[in-house]
Computed example of a mutant assay.
Amino acid sequence: MSGAASEFLKEAAERCQATPPVEIGVRELLGHWGHAVRSDAVVADVTADLAAHGLTTVPPLADAGRTVEIVPIPVDTEPESPSAEPEVDDEAPVRVSLRVRELPSATGGVTSVALDDTLAQAETTMLSDDFSQLAVLQDGRLRGAVTWDSIRLARARGSGDLRSAVDPLPEVLKCDDDLLRHAPRIYTAGFAFVEDENRTLVGIVTLADLAQQFVGLANPFVLLSEIEQRLRRLVRRICDLAEMRAKARYPNKTDGADDLMFGDYKKIFEDETLFLRCGWADIDHDVFVEKLDRVRVIRNDVMHFSPEGVRDEHTRTLNAFIKFIKGLDGGS
């Protein structure tokens, strides 16, 4: 455990004794341990250190959105004894769900008008802020939405007040709703408001937010797919089936390079005899394996759909490795 983590845990334990809970961003919490992205190993490490100081997180760190509360472990709860060294399974089942709260706009606040405001106030706000919709509130509660479509329909009916332009049944999601499951609702309506567990309006999710999230998720998958395709082609060139099976985690299920796990590629290229068959006279074996292992770690972070997302430096690393291996593979 780093000195920063020890100091944080000591301070958190003292604060929890005085005025629990301690709220903290997940990214900030991981930073005390020197991590930027959540993985199974990181979660196990942080959770174990918290438990050793009588602390835990609500919700559990593995399932949390952008923030957690650090609280004392209930006295009637027996914490599990963590192993000294968490075992990491590169091909373990991964979390393939995203919570609505993981979109920044979902908890980023909402511009609103009051139910008793004028339609001109709503239109001016939408025009000046370049919004397509506004929340309509009364006594702090959501009463509907006003959109350009609802305004046009109200005017077509001969009405010119805000109340007549309010859509009373806009889509509303909870922070902890599964984003992918509810994406069709957002797509159909064009947007959805977001409420917390107390029914307080905290944000809005639009089609643009979904598109941005999709690009952020899809791009690393595309890059990793190309890397795996090129690794398979290299493996076919330097290994026969028996040698592949000798390195494979599941040899009985391996009938070719397409059946290999990503960790199997690393085992193959760690073998200097096999590596030399690549014919790369001026490529250092240890450096190549190190770069490949870095890609493996990024791949695991991507497959966990980490709420912290794939950082720009990760995308640069993947792009650089593609350029590197593409050149080694003949540039095609």
Rank of each mutant, 00 (worst) to 15 (best):
A92V: 05
S105I: 13
T107E: 11
L98Q: 03
T77Y: 15
R99I: 02
G109A: 09
I70F: 00
P72L: 06
E91N: 15
D90S: 11
V94Y: 08
V68R: 04
P79W: 06
L55Y: 10
R99V: 10
T77S: 05
D89L: 09
T107H: 04
L103F: 14
E91W: 13
G54M: 01
E78V: 15
D90R: 07
T77D: 06
P59N: 00
D90M: 05
P104M: 15
L98F: 09
E87A: 07
T77N: 03
S97M: 12
E102D: 13
H53T: 01
V88I: 11
G65A: 12
T77C: 11
G108I: 09
P59M: 05
V71S: 09
P104V: 13
G108M: 08
T107C: 10
A92D: 14
S105M: 11
V96A: 15
P74N: 10
E78C: 09
P86E: 05
V110P: 07
I73Q: 13
T77W: 13
G54V: 07
R99N: 12
P93T: 13
G65H: 05
R95W: 01
P59K: 01
V58F: 06
H53K: 14
T111F: 08
I73E: 11
E102G: 12
G108Q: 13
D76G: 06
A64V: 00
T77A: 06
A62H: 02
V100R: 05
P79I: 07
V96Q: 14
G108K: 10
G109Y: 01
E80A: 10
P59R: 00
T107D: 01
P82H: 02
P79Q: 14
A92T: 03
P86W: 08
R101W: 12
T111M: 11
S97P: 02
E85Y: 12
I73T: 12
P72D: 11
E69M: 03
V94C: 09
P72K: 08
V100Q: 05
I70N: 00
P79N: 11
V68D: 07
S105V: 13
P86A: 03
D76N: 15
S97R: 15
T111P: 01
P93F: 08
A106Q: 11
V88C: 06
P60W: 01
V88M: 06
I73F: 09
L103G: 02
V68K: 06
V100C: 09
T111D: 10
S81M: 03
V110L: 05
